[in-house]
């Protein structure tokens, strides 16, 4: 119902920003996440950043999955 892709903020001017999704650069609005900083990843939907990607949670997930799949079958 809502495709949203992670893009890296590569340039920011006020609420306007350029994000990079695997080399594709697009102008988007930071209206909904004004605090997003250059270098951070945001989830982009129809030209707007809807949320800032929580990198810690992302790393935590991968750690959990490795434990889940390596460890004995609980």
């Amino acid at each position: 119902m809502c495709l949203s892709v992670p893009g890296k903020v590569v340039e920011k001017k006020g609420l306007a920003a350029d994000v990079d999704v695997g080399g594709t650069i697009r102008k988007i609005s930071l209206k909904f996440v004004p605090e997003a900083k250059v270098g951070e990843y945001v989830l982009v939907h129809t030209g707007f950043a809807m949320q800032i990607v929580d990198e810690e949670e992302a790393n935590e997930m991968m750690k959990l999955l490795k434990e889940l799949t390596d460890g004995p079958v609980s």
Partner: peptide, 13 residues
Amino acid sequence: ISEGVLGACEMLG
């Protein structure tokens, strides 16, 4: 598939 094509296709669905 190049990263550029993957990125553009992900963005446009």
